[in-house]
Design a protein around this nucleic acid. Structure first.
Lengths: 224, 224
DNA sequence: CGTCAACTTGATGGGTCTCAATAGCGGTGG
DNA sequence: CCACCGCTATTGAGACCCATCAAGTTGACG
């Protein structure tokens, strides 16, 4: 799946979701020893079933993890924005694949190096545990999301995206409607229709399809 | 929520799901220092928002973790059978509540003791990480479950339950239809109807409502 | 201004929920 | 032992939400 290099959105200076807890040792490792790689739009970062050799941190851009089901449906597990660490799927092999949503810079650390350090550095060990727990927490929230109605899912998604920015009153979405749909377990048509509904209700505004202004966050939270 | 003490099912000698990976140090701690507590049917083991003070292992019976949403719906996060370790919700406070499905014996260890030991025992640290990762893996599977159709969800559920027994050709369900429905994100009516469908198709047999014989596992796996 | 991809909008059907009634099962007491 | 009770599970009818299929619109780029 080739893709031309094009910088559509510069999503930067976002507070990293999973760097909320102290990631000092880990952050230091990414800054010091971490090599950087660039990925084009839709380029694969790792595939499901591959050995989990690295841990990754988004420097710029956006990453999606996903799984393709037997019938061809795709479920997106998470979106990772600048500062977020990803690749903590499982001990041995990745349970999900990872792709760049659009041109993305990623820092990598070899897991083997972390494994070695962890034996001496209990702080790092704690950070790895915290990181995994925050991923667990995220997955649990995703479960709660998937049992809600379409409107509730879309509202939750918008609030989640907004909460990961400094200015949470509007969002520049890095991902397509198809990505959103596959994350929420809906179709693109339903996502689109729901957004239109919310716009008609003056809950949001859609200057462009990717830019969403949250005009009534309380109303969104009520749906959520 | 009072409940009479009654031993309905003795589910024992099941291979513990999350003890597959080496849990030697942790197992030893449960065996040695672990106190045992009994819980009646529907009795709360811990509540959402409470401090996560202990780690638990099921000795006999069955435990469900769940969360009540704003509108009153209940989502069950997981069922834990004998040998399973639970209570690894998050660092500080529990994200879910935990209840005994029916009379249940549980072993407990104080987290503070684990925390202390982890600083010296890297094996234990690794086990805690593995435990959290296996919970993460479970949650991710649950996400994939919730985007499927009702028939697929029920089929997956039956196969999952069967795989956690020695004899995987029939299952004695410890939980009610309501529990199953809240785990699968369906209504009891849909669960019941789907089971009847599967019975009519000779895929399963239902001698009693709690006992289910898997007559055609291949067919179930095809739905899954 | 033509082309292509992404998004939106429309019409229709199906799967699951809701509401309601019936059936089964275990426990209790006459 | 059987009638009765309460709870759980099953079955039925109708409504609703979302998926599907299809057509139209918008915006980016040559």
């Amino acid at each position: 799946m080739l893709a031309q290099v094009q910088v559509l959105h510069r999503v930067s200076e976002l507070p990293a979701r999973n760097s909320a807890r102290s990631n000092d040792s880990l952050s230091a490792m990414f800054d010091m020893t971490g090599a950087t790689m660039m990925f084009r739009r839709d380029e694969e970062i790792y595939g499901e079933g591959e050995n989990a050799e690295y841990l990754y941190r988004v420097k710029s851009g956006c990453v999606r993890t996903y799984k393709i089901l037997a019938d061809g449906r795709r479920q997106i597990g998470a979106f990772y924005l600048p500062g977020d660490i990803f690749g903590v799927d499982d001990v041995k092999t990745h349970q999900f694949s990872a792709e760049a949503v659009h041109p993305t810079a990623v820092a990598l650390i070899k897991r083997s190096i972390i494994e070695t350090r962890v034996l001496r550095d209990t702080t790092l060990a704690r950070q790895m545990l915290n990181l995994t727990m925050s991923e667990l927490h995220r997955a649990q929230s995703h479960i709660l999301l998937l049992i809600k109605s379409a409107r509730e899912r879309v509202a939750s998604f918008l609030l989640e995206m907004a909460s990961r920015k400094h200015d949470d009153s509007e969002v520049e979405l890095p991902m397509s409607r198809q990505d959103i749909a596959d994350y929420l377990g809906l179709t693109i048509e339903t996502v689109s229709r729901t957004l239109t509904q919310l716009e008609n209700a003056s809950t949001i505004a859609l200057p462009t399809s990717r830019r969403i202004i949250l005009r009534n966050q309380a109303a969104l939270a009520r749906l959520d």
